[in-house]
């Protein structure tokens, strides 16, 4: 079953900083939901193909035409920080 260290690892993968209280709560609640989800493991699906999309649409193509899009100003208008036409972020390394 899911343990506290699993929750901590998954939170790191999901880039979510969780409090100690949240880690404990999620360990319990995720355990309950996953226990319910265990049910699907009992079905024999060895001959069944997975469905990722409910309708048989495939390879939707269009002509590669230039059309009007957002201006640079519009594209940056919701950015928490922007400068000189760029998104500004904290240092990466």
């Amino acid at each position: 079953m899911i343990e506290k260290k699993d929750v901590e690892y998954v939170a790191w993968l999901a880039r979510l900083e969780l409090s100690e209280e949240e880690i404990e709560r999620f360990t319990r609640q995720l355990g309950q939901v996953l226990e319910h989800a265990e049910k699907i493991k009992s079905l024999d699906t060895s001959e069944i193909r997975p469905t990722s999309h409910p309708l048989p649409l495939k390879n939707v193509m269009r002509e590669d035409l230039v059309k009007p899009g957002l201006t640079q100003e519009e594209a940056l208008s919701n950015a928490p920080r922007a400068e000189g036409g760029y998104f500004v972020v904290p240092r990466i390394i």
Binding site: V10, L30, I40, K41, P50
Partner: peptide, 29 residues
């Protein structure tokens, strides 16, 4: 947060086939 955690877990290495892969097959059924 709960759903991001649940989804990230179900997609993570070692659990993908057992949870997400199986759920997609159940969807076919």
């Amino acid at each position: 947060k709960r759903r991001i955690m649940l989804g990230t877990y179900a997609l993570s290495a070692g659990y993908y086939e057992a949870y997400y892969g199986q759920a997609q097959k159940v969807r076919t059924l």
